[in-house]
């Protein structure tokens, strides 16, 4: 279960961003890369990152659990995070969340039976004016998500 050569290369370029004696700075980037490859951060994956960066394993675990976007458990193929903060809520994101829940048949924090979707409630994503906003697998942001657009999105995410 070791990281791929491609991931290792990407981690190297993250490490290169920081002074030579500050490899630990690359831990967030390395965990993002590892999660992108594996889908989530298993203990052995975090151990491996600790080894690469010369960190105590528990220090890596601290970072992975502090930042909300790391997956410490496997998720569905598509993790959908919808922001429900006050401004988004005022602009209809709660309705959008209800629509998502109804369409997927799951609540926040749950995964569909077919393993396709995990639904998460998000905090501010810095895109409030474009609410409702849905983030797919931490990477692709969809904004102004009306119910119709949500239906299209769900169809597209196989």
């Amino acid at each position: 279960m070791t990281l791929s050569v491609d991931s290792m290369k990407k981690i190297d370029s993250e490490v290169a961003k920081y002074p030579a004696d500050q490899k630990q700075s690359a831990v967030m980037g390395a965990l993002i890369i590892a999660q992108d490859e594996k889908g989530w951060l298993a203990t052995e994956t975090m151990d491996e990152v600790a080894g690469i960066l010369g960190m105590a394993p528990v220090a890596v675990y601290e970072v992975a659990t502090f930042y909300g976007m790391y997956n410490l458990k496997p998720t569905g193929k598509h993790k959908l995070t919808i922001c429900t903060c006050l401004p988004c809520g005022l602009q209809g994101s709660l309705d959008a969340a209800d629509h998502l829940k109804a369409r997927l048949g799951i609540d926040f924090g749950e995964t569909t039976g077919d393993g396709r979707f995990t639904l998460k409630e998000g905090e501010c994503m810095g895109a409030c004016a474009m609410a409702p906003v849905i983030l797919v697998n931490n990477k692709k942001m969809h904004d102004y998500m009306s119910n119709e657009k949500i239906d299209v999105l769900l169809r597209e995410l196989k």
Binding site: T43, D47, A56, P57, V58, Y61, E62, T65, F66
Partner: peptide, 22 residues
């Protein structure tokens, strides 16, 4: 000289742990 315990999570969920299995 060795970080055997860490505080994981954040806010009210912050807790002291050793790394899994250590």
């Amino acid at each position: 000289g060795v970080m055997e315990l860490g505080m994981i999570g954040r806010g009210e969920h912050a807790e002291i742990v050793a790394f899994v299995g250590k």
